[in-house]
């Protein structure tokens, strides 16, 4: 087939269709006037269940924290600090997550395709950055049950050593995951598993598409 034939074929085919196309004006108007409602619907479809579950979890943590602070005793110091940190980390992660979903939903599509798709993809991937922030709570899960009443003065040296190793390993693990869960590492097997667990396959797809956009920009 000659080069120009693609254009001709396309033109002939769609010119005929174009003549037969008619706009349903009533439906168009209805569609447009319902846009505000639609925008809310589109937002609502984003992982609503996950967000609701996270809010319930935060309410639960907040209530426990509030109760511990209201009935303060020095024995609850570890508990208050640990649950407080876990609570704050989760609040920040959820806030950033929702903020990004709203940004993605409200993005203006007017702009070059490479620019807008790149922006959208980066926004999707940045959700990953917030989910990786969650790993920072790991060490606090190893300290919330400690009490000033018995730790460290009434604990045996064996237990102190165990606690130290436990908290230190969780701190190192959290730090390592935080530093290494990046787009550059996304193709590695362990990172894929972790990302799929935390951000879903959408993020993996977004990363892959981002690489496609980068390659598309190259002229060779």
């Amino acid at each position: 087939m000659e080069e120009t034939n693609f254009v001709l074929l396309w033109k002939e085919h769609y010119d005929k269709i174009d003549e037969s196309l008619a706009i349903n004006r009533q439906l168009l108007k209805e569609n447009i006037t319902q846009k505000a409602e639609h925008a809310l619907q589109s937002l609502a479809k984003f992982k609503t269940r996950g967000i609701i579950a996270a809010i319930i979890y935060l309410i639960l943590l907040g209530t426990i924290l509030f109760y511990a602070i209201s009935n303060y005793t020095s024995a609850a110091n570890y508990f208050i600090v640990s649950i407080g940190a876990i609570f704050l980390i989760n609040v920040k992660a959820l806030y950033d997550y929702i903020k990004h979903l709203v940004w993605i939903n409200n993005i203006d599509y007017c702009g070059s395709i490479v620019e807008i798709q790149g922006k959208l993809t980066q926004l999707q991937v940045s959700i990953l950055h917030h989910s990786r922030f969650m790993v920072l709570q790991f060490p606090f899960w190893t300290t919330f049950y400690l009490s000033d009443n018995w730790f460290p003065h009434a604990a045996g040296s064996g237990y102190i050593a165990f606690q130290f190793v436990l908290t230190a390993s969780f701190t190192l693990l959290a730090y390592w995951l935080y530093k290494n869960q990046t787009m550059e590492n996304a193709q590695k097997k362990w990172a894929k598993l972790f990302i799929e667990g935390s951000g879903g396959k959408t993020v993996i797809k977004a990363i892959k598409f981002y690489q496609e956009i980068e390659s598309f920009k190259q002229s060779h």
Binding site: A22, I23, N24, L27, L28, N31, Q34, S42
Partner: peptide, 20 residues
Amino acid sequence: KSRSNLNVPLSENILNIADF
């Protein structure tokens, strides 16, 4: 794949095409 349920029923079209 999960598509939003738009307010306009999908049985109706904004762009209608005659028999072709």
